[in-house]
Amino acid sequence: MAVLKKTPTMVSIPNHFCPGCGHGILNRLIAEVIEEKGYEKKTIMTLGVGCSCNMNASWNGDKIQCAHGRGAATATGVKIARPDLLSIAYQGDGDAYVIGLAETLNAAYRNEPITVFVINNNNFAMTGGQMSWTTMPGQVTTTSVHGRDPALTGMPIRVPEFAATFPDVAYVARGSVHSAKEINRLRGYVKNAIEAQLNGEGYALVEVLCQCPTNWGMSVEKSIKWMEEEVAPYYTLGELKGRRK
């Protein structure tokens, strides 16, 4: 049976991500939900530094570019000034979990009524593929050329699990874009994270496992297979904290 699909206007401008990069999929899911809610002209997207900067050229809506790591703090300020608008921080793992770990966790801790999306592609992609706190054991990056050694650099960080322990936080989930099935699940997480803010329920965080074929040095086929077999088993997919009924 045919399922009608139309490109949302907020992603109607061609994006500047690399071929096969999963960012574009999350961009579209967010756009779909915003348009479903009728918030195209009532959303301010705060962009972190990293590949999310590419959205300056393609995200067809209001967007503020802040510094590396300060997305949650900036989105907090936006929400304080305009509580009537949807305030979203869109960041990568290096941005939100490494340099911006303090801002990310403190915004969650205070239960700021913002929605944070974090692309986790297991590396610092914009700067050319350096090791991130999310890099998998053994994964080769330009700063872990023999593969990440957890004995020296720690095991990959799981921030959503920690954020979910704060008592008041409204919604925390981790999705992935490595298959159509997971993308459809992720759409539900995106929707919950946005609805939680619109309903005044509090802070919401959705981490998204995302392929980075360019910096992983893999085809899309290999990338999604690696995500399914290696990454997703470590980074448990699903809702880590469901919305209160």
Partner: peptide
């Protein structure tokens, strides 16, 4: 880029290409 093409005789218009495409190449109208 060597762009994608569709075999109309096989396509069921299920929309999975729309779901996975990072670049919004596909629409089902």
């Amino acid at each position: 880029y060597d762009y994608v093409a569709n075999d109309e005789s096989k396509c069921t218009k299920c929309g999975i290409c729309y779901t996975v495409c990072p670049d919004n190449v596909f629409e089902i109208l």
